[in-house]
Design a protein around this nucleic acid. Structure first.
Lengths: 346, 346
DNA sequence: CTGCGGTTCTTGATCGATCCAATACGCAGC
DNA sequence: GCTGCGTATTGGATCGATCAAGAACCGCAG
């Protein structure tokens, strides 16, 4: 016996097919198929007999054959973006896991693909034309959503995690987290602690998400009749930008607390405080956004707005099931409320 | 027109098939198939004609049909574990992305699945029996590897990210990162900076990976004739364990530097230092492991051992291609060396 | 004993690609 | 002009499931 055979064995036995089960159970193929897909069509004793044959052989329907016939793959495509080094943004990890779990319960699996960097749509197109997936989850909706229009035009079923900012009447189902509510929550939390001069550090104005979150901060401030002028700054989403912005704001506006559009920016604030010998949570309060691992393990902890990603995933899958149903259900947008993970920094 | 149709349009046109292309190009189905899979079998002018027809119709082979016939899905299964909240362990994010990218180049897609928590093997079994994936990537090899033996017995092709610790002669291909070399690197880096009393904070003894990393530290120490007794501690992988362990070590052994088995533990050390008014990198040096986002954004930065996950993914896919080849290539284990991301803490 | 509605089960066709064996084609040599 | 040979191309069968019918079976009323 040669080494290859010794290691990997002979040709693995072909898995049992529907016909094998049918023969063993003494019924026809169709009956086995019904036992699997429409059990209530069978007489109880026949069903039992078929079930036993299935168990005995360890039969599972061949997915390729089933997919071919039913024109469905029970796969959901999810495009993943490169990890951003040097930031605290890691919500994908949590979301992906929740999505896989929710999909599993609905009988779907998640297929990952990474867009050809040159042409993000090429990846979608490829999977779509080869009928490799039944639908997509689209997550990158930060600036409008070119994919949405493209997929819509192709009649490709998809659900977006993120509102169609540039087109509120977009016909596709979507699920999103209310960033404004989150920042309102964070700001109100600080206001309740007695802070009155609460600064905002967010992203540049062309980010819909950033403006939404900012609106939550200003809304909460206005609700208590507090001014916001001079207390806001808009920068890049990097630690050093957060550091610089907070330094300027401390000098010019003397805020006693910061609400940030991301944990990355909040880490920058913490750095400024450390440089000035100030203690986060005692001298100056800080709240971040996304409840990243960074927020959880940083010294004394960073209070942060936590997106209910598990719920998002469940809603996304629910919307997907509706969209793939016959007839497709029109699923309105779903907006979920985040919570606040309070830690030492506030 | 009813609302549903207005929103989603009529039944989408059926995608073009091989036969459609054949008819348009005026050739037979097999010729089109050859044009796609064995272009060199065709005469140049025929190939061109078929190509044009393919482009004109936007044809892509139906995956289900191809999978059924070729008994291959070109999918790779990857089981993902729940995210550990409160730790800095996020290497999966980076690895998954690299894996998707490497797989894409090899013509594969990554299928995620989450083991039924009750029975981790059920998820593998299901996908295997339904021939949904061609192979698996197994990542959880921290304590031996029950999956490996099970998959091996089922003759399921798989590649492990992680050595078969409990069975060095295991016949399956694997790729791993040399944790000992990483910690040797980290320790040597500190030794070069003039540190002599370098403490180790690692995991409990039943972790093969932890013992491996620890060996790198003690090896580097011994190489310079330095003692290690009293300088090591083994704890749980949490921030607070790292904090407690470093406090005890500082009191009892007065180390001037720490090498940790994870960034999570290193964050605990940083916390202790902060509590004692010591500055990381100036008073006491700290090195973590995994180069997590936490290490990258924490104030002044945490020096950390960085696993070459991109290379791991490439090697894993390479091994997979060998394993799935005919005949399967026997791929020896591959051990890659990590690098050190030097930051402010050292 | 026949007829009938309803359930239960079976047979043949089908999804769209690839494998297989057989045929048409081109070209050199007699 | 015919044969031989390698290349290019073709039609038919096949993978394993589901769909769409139709057939067998059941009990029960006429």
């Amino acid at each position: 016996m040669d080494t290859v055979s010794k290691v990997f064995g002979r040709i693995p036995p072909a898995p049992p097919t529907l016909a094998d089960v049918a023969e063993l159970a003494g019924v026809s193929r169709q009956t086995v198929s019904n036992a699997v897909n429409n059990p209530d069509l069978l007489r109880a004793d026949t069903l039992l007999r078929v079930q036993q044959a299935i168990d005995q052989l360890g039969y599972s329907p061949n997915r390729a054959a089933r997919n071919l016939r039913t024109r469905a793959s029970h796969l959901i495509g999810l495009r993943i973006q490169p990890v951003q080094e040097g930031t605290a943004n890691a919500l994908m990890d949590r979301f992906v896991h929740s999505l896989v779990e929710a999909s599993r319960e609905a009988g779907y699996h998640v297929l990952l693909f990474s867009g050809d960097p040159i042409d993000a749509l090429a990846g979608y197109d490829d999977l779509l034309r080869s009928t490799a997936v039944d639908a997509f989850i689209v997550t990158d909706t930060y600036l409008g959503n070119p994919q949405a229009a493209w997929l819509g035009a192709r009649r490709a079923p998809f659900v977006a995690f993120g509102r169609p900012w540039d087109n509120p009447d977009a016909p596709h189902p979507w699920v999103d987290v209310d960033g404004a509510a989150g920042c309102d929550l964070a700001t109100s939390h600080l206001l309740d602690k007695g802070h009155e001069r609460i600064a905002w550090i967010g992203w540049r104005k062309d980010s819909f998400i950033g403006e939404d979150r900012r609106a939550g901060w200003s809304r909460a401030m206005r609700a208590r009749g507090l001014p916001t002028t001079g207390l806001a700054s808009r920068v890049e989403d990097t630690v050093s930008s957060g550091r610089d912005a907070s330094a300027v704001l401390l000098d010019e506006a003397q805020p006693s607390a910061f609400v940030c559009a991301s944990d990355t920016l909040a880490m920058g604030v913490l750095r400024t405080l450390a440089e000035r010998g100030l203690t986060a949570g005692r001298d100056v309060a800080v709240v971040g956004f996304d409840d990243s691992q960074v927020a959880q393990v940083v010294a004394s902890g960073l209070t942060s707005v936590r997106q209910p990603l598990e719920d998002v995933a469940v809603e996304v899958v629910k919307a997907l099931e509706g969209r793939l149903g016959h007839p497709p259900a029109i699923h309105p947008g779903v907006l979920l409320s985040p919570t606040l993970a309070v830690r030492g920094s506030s």
